[in-house]
């Protein structure tokens, strides 16, 4: 116990070796290492403590991953467990196996966190589009009217130019695909697109000026 700090290692080996069968979640040697590291940490050995926390973090992460889904939640849970371990590290008895002590803290904190989350969620409602107090009317109407105006302008173009704009700009096909779909040559597609854009600019600007 706390009296025989100098001869701690052999004592730990004997006792932890006898009881470690029920530690299903961590291999026996690791459990023994962790017990020794924790015993040193209780005596104020910061380096041993840092090594211990670093080594148990992946295990805690897998423990938390059983209860939580998002990576942020898992990381939050791991940190919560680490802080809890820190605040009650004096409750660990080095003559007993470390695994069950750690596993209970991990389990309890994860479950507690889950409960707290579900309590929060029960009070919250996800924000839906119908919760918007002001409908987003203006922008949408403008978009629609612009679209209609453009469609009308395109329909005023000669058929070859209409086809070129339709395939290359609205459907965003490649020149090669457009050529095989329309039966026009790549060159004439280019020329027609160029002319169509020029005409459209003229039509639309002319209308706006009216």
């Amino acid at each position: 116990m706390s009296g025989d700090r100098g001869s701690q290692t052999p004592v730990l080996k004997l006792v932890a070796g006898g009881e470690r069968i029920d530690v299903s979640t961590s291999p026996p040697n690791r459990d023994l290492d962790w017990a020794i590291l924790m015993a040193r940490a209780q005596d104020g050995d910061g380096a041993a403590y840092q090594r211990l926390l670093q080594e148990i973090t992946p295990y805690l992460r897998s423990l938390a991953a059983r209860r939580h889904r998002s990576a942020d939640d898992i990381e939050d849970a791991v940190q919560d467990i680490l802080l809890t371990i820190h605040s009650i590290r004096h409750t660990y008895d080095p003559t007993r196996p470390f695994g069950p002590w750690l596993a209970t803290i991990g389990e309890r904190r994860s479950i507690d966190r889950l409960r707290r989350r579900s309590r929060h969620q029960r009070r919250e409602t996800p924000l839906q589009p119908e919760h918007e107090a002001v409908a987003d009317v203006g922008v949408d109407m403008e978009g629609k009217s612009n679209r209609r105006e453009l469609e009308r302008a395109i329909s005023d173009l000669p058929p070859a130019q209409q086809m070129a704009i339709e395939l290359l700009k609205l459907k965003e096909m490649s020149l090669k695909d457009a050529a095989s779909a329309s039966g026009m040559s790549i060159n004439s597609l280019k020329v027609n697109t160029h002319r169509a854009l020029k005409n459209l600019r003229k039509i639309l600007l002319g209308r706006n000026e009216l």
Partner: peptide, 24 residues
Amino acid sequence: MIKTPDLIASLSTNLTPVRRLRPP
């Protein structure tokens, strides 16, 4: 949110010895 390795580092620096609990 603080990163987990940073948290571990901050917990283990200036670690104070604790008195273990007596048997229950």
